[in-house]
Write a protein that binds this DNA or RNA. Structure first.
Lengths: 250, 250
DNA sequence: CTATTGAATACGTGTGACCTTTGGGGTTGA
DNA sequence: TCAACCCCAAAGGTCACACGTATTCAATAG
């Protein structure tokens, strides 16, 4: 087998959102241009020339054009004849694109992005928990309980990494059990937020035991088909998350 | 090839009407391939060949590749060497992409899509209403009231089209006033859902007066900075929308 | 039966040319 | 003065062709 240089870039934390995709040259251009634009390095209205991009990244115009096409589909730029590639204002960005989210979380306004996503979580996850309680299969209930117990088991002794895995799996399972594709698709977003919180906010201490208990209670409520209770407890969890964010990043 | 525009085939007769603002040839390929894939015409795992696409749409491989790149950024397909362009399962689709939403709303599982989006609305809009009540500027409050009054004025006499415009403007204003970019970005989604409901479900009659009143009350609550009330009333509105959907499309 | 190796294949990339659109500036005329 | 008109250069859009390269599959040797 030939050399697989793929794993060389290191940092392979939780699978899913952090999957760096630099497939092809156009991917490399994207990996550089995307973060730059979302970080605001190019103010809205800035005009980039395809030829200039091709020269800067030492690729052919074809490759540069492919990158521009992708950026265009994310509404980060607009390509017009005789004008060039214009950077669009942030209001038009496709902020639900996982790639855009990743770029922004890695960039300058990481704080604002984290806040926006946490608010979104606070709206979606309680409703998802209620729907999960109403529709989850026994297998999904079991998985939910297992993930909650995993959180309990890793909540002490500085096993933050393992705790994070179970936390992510738990929320992902709730979203999937809601049987709503729009909710399920937010699993990656939640994973990114939780990962970001653990990495960024220097959680030196173990997670708060009340938070762990709340997760267990959500699993119980779902198992008992108590949608209202599941929703209520999940709302407490997300409100705690927002409060935590306010304390750590005012 | 010298005369590339409508040579002998002449299949471009609807050029004026079909000018769907699709920029460039790759846009036309997308406008055909995207709906086809999201409609399930190509089951997951189906392999499309770039060369084959180029031939089918009578474009160069370059153009076909650009279209594939965009589809790939939406996670509708995956392009791998030696194997071709593989259609991905629906679970991986970027269902928040406005383009994907449009395609799916125009296609076969329009019903399921409408239901998913309505559930999403029921989660997001009440929270957005609360945030709007807490943070809206006087100008935004005024605009909100104006849109609500517009709904009142057009709620009788079969002015459904005008009513729809005010309805959309109202919900869009609430989402924008929430000061959350993720919520604000759902304005288009809500607009699509409301439009779809009006067009599809044959609302022969005028909108229910209770619904109109609820909108006015939301505007009042926001103006009075009563977040809890705004959230509660908006929740009633979205629950009504879901109930309506259950009645009309069981 | 397993592992190695080789070839066919389809995407990936680069290049150079030409076409099409479009915005701007200069000209003309009322 | 100002409007309408026209012309042209600029930039993206499209194309065909060539070569690179990873990946799959099957034939082969151990």
């Amino acid at each position: 087998m030939t050399s697989q240089d793929e794993g060389a870039d290191g940092s392979e934390q939780g699978r899913g959102a952090a999957r760096t995709r630099e497939r092809g040259l156009h991917g490399r251009v994207l990996a550089s241009l995307g973060p730059a634009i979302t970080a605001g390095e190019y103010p809205p209205g800035t005009v980039l020339l395809t030829e200039e991009l091709a020269a800067r990244y030492e690729v052919s115009r074809t490759v540069a054009r492919e990158a521009v096409r992708v950026l265009e589909s994310m509404h980060l730029v607009e390509s017009r004849r005789r004008v060039g590639v214009t950077v669009l204002p942030a209001e038009q960005w496709n902020v639900y694109d996982p790639q855009v989210i990743t770029w922004r979380l890695a960039g300058a306004d990481r704080g604002r992005q984290l806040r926006s996503l946490t608010v979104l979580r606070s709206a979606v996850e309680p409703v998802a928990a209620r729907l999960a309680a109403e529709q989850a299969t026994p297998e999904e209930c079991a998985a939910l309980t297992e993930h909650a117990l995993g959180m309990v088991a890793t909540s002490r002794g500085g096993q933050l990494d393992n705790y994070l895995v179970h936390d992510i799996d738990f929320h992902r399972a709730v979203l999937r059990a809601s049987r709503n594709e729009m909710f399920a698709r937010l699993g990656d977003v939640v994973a990114a937020v939780l990962t970001g919180r653990t990495q960024h906010d220097v959680m030196f201490s173990d997670p708060r035991q009340e938070a762990v208990t709340l997760h267990v209670q959500v699993a119980e409520a779902v198992r008992e088909r108590d949608g209202a209770r599941a929703e209520r407890i999940m709302r407490t969890i997300t409100e705690d998350a927002m409060a935590e964010l306010d304390v750590l990043a005012p």
